[in-house]
Amino acid sequence: MRRRTFLLLLSSLALPACRAAEPTEKVLNLLCWTEYVPTSVTASFTKQTGVRVVMENYNSNEQMLAMLRDKPHHYDLVQPSQAYVETLIHGSGLESLDAARIPNLQNIDPQFRRLPHDPEEKYSVPWMSGTVGIVVNTNAVQEPIHTWADVFSGKYRGKIVAVNDQREMVAWALASLGMPITQIDDASLARTEPVLRKWLPQISVFDSDSPHTALLDGRAVIGIVWSGEAALALAEGSPIPIRPTQGKARTCFSIASRFLPVHHTKALPRISSTTAWSPR
């Protein structure tokens, strides 16, 4: 049931945009995050539709925009974080969807539908949602980690892995200062500078592709990672008691992403990533 659900959703989006690489072959050019679209899914899609999927990956929204600029009119579907959906809409980079051809949207949790970045749901549909949070190897870290100050106290220098995302680093620093994480101006950046100068040298691994790996192989004992990566660490890490921090320590950034067609690409503005949440 669900398999059909997703395939209908994907094929409804994909087929109108497919291009013929050869007279007998249809190709879907898919631009998506690393570690986000299983090859089992694209293989099943090809098996059921006959459409070959050519997948290219990126590990940041900024990279995604650059790839769109580098190959205008090339990609059929792209998978930005939701704030970047807004960017692409404003940049007239998207073709609108035909909702009548996406009947399985009814299966999507209402809390993920008609969000502010695309209130009429004209250009995007949900793929997955996530957060960025702090995970701790409690074999190596006995003390409670409740705040950013705990993470970057200096005790764990050289044992921290973090996603390689500049916008999020600034958001973490702003959150630690009790400032709005969307307040980006010269004054707010200046406030974060001493924080980042203290924090960044303590991070030993910057990895947006598979940051949970550093937790499992021991290169890091604290991670600031995508929630899906944290989930993998939790699932694969046993008996390593990696746990997500709770309460005040949890900083969550949504990476709710959307499949949507890219029809034409003008010069696109660079805009922030993700819907994000951050604690004080």
Binding site: Q166, R167, M169, I184, L189, C252, R270, S272, A276
Partner: peptide, 20 residues
Amino acid sequence: RLLPLRNVGNDTKAVDQFVK
């Protein structure tokens, strides 16, 4: 406590340069 991070427009470029 979880607050949404919204689109910050072209300031993202400034953030990139600042952090880099």
